[in-house]
Each structure stands twice: as structure tokens, then as C-alpha cells.
């Protein structure tokens, strides 16, 4: 295959994972919580796109955003807020349980057969033709990744609520002692996570217009792994890690000899293992190891 094509595919996948990682990293930052239920937001958004297929694309997308943000905030309020201060194992299993229940709901409501949803199917058209096909969706994904990451970074750096969020992420108790309204800050993190999920739902249906109950869960798992490899406690490192794992697995698919192609997942995760062992605090992190062990 063409080398340029390989890179484009890698960029597209990487950008998608990076978008997922933004939400994961923000929530992890303020709550020290790995939110496995985040993938279900993407699935919910994608199913809402399917259900509103007869509406104009814009209306459908607006509804998708509302669904993702609403569900994200609802889950935090109902399932995670009562567990603040509980042990990490407990909160982790709680996010799992929520994901499990939601996935069962999707399965019951929509069956395991794929449902069509593609409000932006036109993005599949080729933007730059010739020997290497660059599709619009790749460009949009890259742009969305850069713009949203930049936007979130700007909110964190420049606004009061962003400052409060950084404070809560660093030292939750001290932030409260200064009067930071932590519930507000946490809700904001979940709102942003919902926005990211909606963006991913809209863009991912372009590449994969068939929505199944595990639509969002699978990509979230990979993005999460990437975020941790990069360093999940910081926005930049988490996104970079998620981007890297998307890019790497896409590259690997082309670089592996065909006899090894079936073992692509194993190779990717072997790489993950090695990186974690070499840099447990995160590939791009400058933190000492002991800091992470307290998580």
C-alpha cells in the first residue's frame, strides 16, 4: 500500500482516539476515575443518530450532542457522585457496571445487528484524489482534534473555571477549602466528556456507518489504554498517547507481514506492556513514578 495512505489512515484513527481521550483525561483529572461508561455515551450518540436519520443532518447532530451531554451528566450525578471517596476498585467496578447495564439496554433495544447511521456520509468523499486518497473525514477528524484539544486547553489555561478545574485535579481537598465549587467543576468535566463523545459519534459513523451495542466501548478501551500509556493525568500526554496508539496500530496493520496480521492486537498490546514497564507514569510524562503509584 502507498506510504502516504498509511499515514493518512493512521492520522485519522489517532485523531479519533485522541478525541475520546480528552474526555477520559478530564474526568480522570478531577475524580481520579477511569470512566469505562464513556464509551456508552458514544454508542448512545450513535444510536440517536440512527433514530433521527429522517431528520435533517444538522438537527440529528444537535440531538446527538444533547443525548451525549445529558447522559454524561446524568451518570455522574446518579452513579459516581455518591461514590466520591470510595476506593478506586469500587468506583472502577461502578463505571463497569454502568457500562454493562447500558450495553445490555442497547442490546435489548436495538439487537446486536448493526443499525445504519451516517448523517455526514458525504465526508467519505475523497478530498484529494490521485494515488493517495485523502478523504474529507480524515481532514475533519484531524481538524476537530486540534481545535477541540486547543479549545479545552484554552479553557483550562485562561478561564476561572479552568483554573478551578486544574486546582481540583491537583488537590481536590485544598480546592474545596478555597471555596471551589467542586460539583460544578466535576459536572463541567462530564459535560466536556459528553461533547467529545458526541463529536466522536458523529465522525465515527462516517467511517463505520453501522452502529452496534459495542460501537463506542471498543474504541474507548483502546483510547484509554493509549491515554494511560501516554500519561492519563495530563490532558496533553493522555491525548498524545491515545493518538499514538491509534497511529501505531494503523501503521502496524500495514507493516506486519501478512502471516502476523491476525496477531495485530497482540503486537499492539505487547508494545503497550513494554512502554508501561519502561515508563509507568506515562510515556510523555515528566512525573516521578511514585506520584503515579499513589493513584
Amino acid at each position: 500500500m502507498n506510504a502516504g495512505q498509511v499515514i493518512f489512515d493512521g492520522l485519522a484513527l489517532g485523531a479519533l482516539y485522541a478525541l475520546v481521550a480528552i474526555g477520559l483525561a478530564l474526568v480522570f483529572g478531577v475524580l481520579r476515575l477511569i470512566n469505562f461508561a464513556q464509551g456508552e455515551l458514544i454508542t448512545a450518540g450513535a444510536y440517536s443518530l440512527y433514530l433521527t436519520d429522517n431528520l435533517p443532518a444538522l438537527a440529528s447532530i444537535v440531538i446527538c450532542f444533547a443525548v451525549c451531554i445529558g447522559l454524561s451528566v446524568l451518570i455522574e450525578r446518579v452513579a459516581f457522585r455518591p461514590l466520591r471517596g470510595a476506593s478506586p476498585a469500587t468506583t472502577l467496578v461502578a463505571t463497569f457496571a454502568v457500562a454493562f447495564a447500558l450495553e445490555a439496554i442497547w442490546l435489548m433495544a436495538f439487537s446486536s445487528n448493526g443499525k445504519p447511521a451516517d448523517p455526514l456520509a458525504s465526508l467519505n468523499q475523497i478530498a484529494i484524489g490521485g494515488s493517495l486518497a485523502l478523504r474529507w473525514v480524515t481532514i475533519v477528524e484531524m481538524a476537530a482534534g486540534v481545535v477541540l484539544l486547543g479549545g479545552v486547553a484554552l479553557v483550562l489555561a485562561r478561564t476561572s473555571v479552568g483554573l478551578q478545574m486544574r486546582a481540583a485535579a491537583t488537590d481536590f481537598r485544598m480546592a474545596r477549602l478555597l471555596g471551589v465549587r467542586t460539583n460544578l467543576v466535576i459536572s463541567l468535566a462530564f459535560v466536556i466528556a459528553g461533547v467529545m463523545a458526541a463529536v466522536v459519534a458523529v465522525l465515527f459513523t462516517v467511517q463505520q456507518p453501522s452502529v452496534t451495542p459495542t460501537f463506542g466501548f471498543d474504541i474507548t478501551l483502546v483510547a484509554l489504554v493509549g491515554a494511560v500509556v501516554g500519561g492519563v493525568d495530563r490532558l496533553w500526554t493522555a491525548t498524545a498517547g491515545a493518538f499514538a496508539i491509534g497511529f501505531a496500530s494503523s501503521m502496524l496493520a500495514d507493516l506486519l507481514p501478512s502471516s502476523q496480521l491476525q496477531f495485530q492486537t497482540a503486537w499492539v498490546f505487547l508494545l503497550v506492556l513494554v512502554l508501561l514497564l519502561l515508563r509507568p507514569a506515562g510515556l510523555f510524562s515528566t512525573l516521578s513514578r511514585s506520584t503515579v503509584e499513589r493513584v
Binding site: 486546582a167 491537583t170 488537590d171 481537598r173 485544598m174 478555597l178
Partner: peptide, 18 residues
């Protein structure tokens, strides 16, 4: 419990929240 990663000024701005 100062916020080590933030600047002194940002720490002070957090003081204004309450």
C-alpha cells in the same frame, strides 16, 4: 498545599474564588 504546578499568581486567584 500550594498548587505547585500553578504560578504564585494563579494560586492567589484561586484564593479569590471563596
Amino acid at each position: 498545599h500550594v498548587f505547585e504546578a500553578l504560578t504564585v499568581e494563579e494560586n492567589l486567584r484561586l484564593g479569590l474564588i471563596g
